Simulated scan of single mutants.
Amino acid sequence: MKTARLSTLLVGLLLAGPATAQIASYECTKAVTAAEHAICTSPSLGRKDVIAATYYDLLLHLKPAVPGMAYREFDDHLRDEQRQFLVTRNACGANNSCLEQSYDDRIAALRKIVDRNAAVVFDRPVGP
């Protein structure tokens, strides 16, 4: 799937960024919840947090893949899904395996949306 490779490349480029390592998509010194503290202490969770945040940010800059859907409607839907993800993620507390699964599910969902929307933006068919 060409769009899957494209989205993987885009995320890879965004993650390459500066030479200093980013532990999470937010400042760990401002972590409040048990989940945020757990993410900041786990390289695997921190990496997944950055990937999910990168996909989310990328989607906020792509046009909707659904014909007739307004940008605002797409953004509102995306933001609602993100808020629900954060509720689900935070319900894990400091349980790393729960957090890993929560991030795996969110990244898979975001990647699907990126693939669909990138196909529209770059005029590429979706599918194998």
Rank of each mutant, 00 (worst) to 15 (best):
V66M: 13
V66G: 02
C98L: 01
A52K: 01
E73G: 02
L62Y: 15
T33N: 05
S25R: 07
T8W: 04
A70S: 15
V11H: 05
Y26D: 05
G127A: 06
L6M: 14
S7V: 14
R72E: 11
R116V: 00
T41L: 04
R79F: 03
V66W: 06
L110P: 06
P18W: 02
A65W: 13
Q101S: 13
A70V: 12
S25H: 12
T29P: 00
V32S: 09
L62Q: 10
T54Q: 00
F122Y: 15
D80N: 13
N96L: 10
V114G: 01
A109R: 12
Y71I: 05
A34P: 03
R72V: 08
F122A: 14
P43A: 08
Q101V: 01
V50L: 09
D76M: 05
K63V: 05
A108D: 09
V66Q: 14
L14S: 12
T20H: 08
T3E: 12
Y71L: 08
Q84T: 03
K30G: 00
L86F: 09
I107Y: 07
I51H: 03
A108F: 06
G93C: 10
T54L: 07
R72L: 09
N96C: 02
G93P: 02
A38T: 08
V66Y: 11
Y71A: 07
T41K: 14
D104G: 04
T88R: 09
A16C: 02
D115V: 15
L60G: 14
P125G: 06
D80G: 00
L13E: 11
D49M: 03
Q82M: 05
I39E: 11
A21Y: 01
L86K: 12
A118H: 05
N96W: 00
L13C: 08
D75F: 00
H37W: 01
P43G: 07
N96H: 12
L58G: 10
K48R: 13
N117Y: 01
P128G: 12
H61Q: 15
P67W: 10
Q101W: 00
I39S: 08
A38L: 10
H61R: 15
P67L: 11
R47V: 00
H61E: 11
D80V: 04
N90L: 01
D76L: 11
S42T: 03
G46Y: 09
G46V: 06
R47L: 13
H77W: 09
H77E: 09
V32E: 11
P18N: 10
V32A: 12
Y56W: 08
T20R: 14
P67A: 15
R89E: 06
R111N: 12
P128F: 09
R5T: 04
F85I: 01
L45S: 05
P18Q: 10
A118P: 01
R47Y: 09
L110R: 10
I51P: 03
R5L: 11
R106L: 03
K48N: 07
Y56N: 07
K30W: 05
D57K: 15
G127D: 07
T41N: 14
S25Q: 06
A65I: 02
N96R: 13
A52Q: 03
Q101K: 15
L59E: 13
V11T: 13
I113K: 14
L15A: 11
R72M: 04
S97P: 00
R83Y: 06
D80I: 04
T88F: 01
N90Q: 12
N117L: 01
H37R: 15
Q101R: 14
A91Q: 08
P67I: 04
H61C: 03
F122H: 08
M69Q: 15
A94H: 12
R111M: 00
L59Y: 09
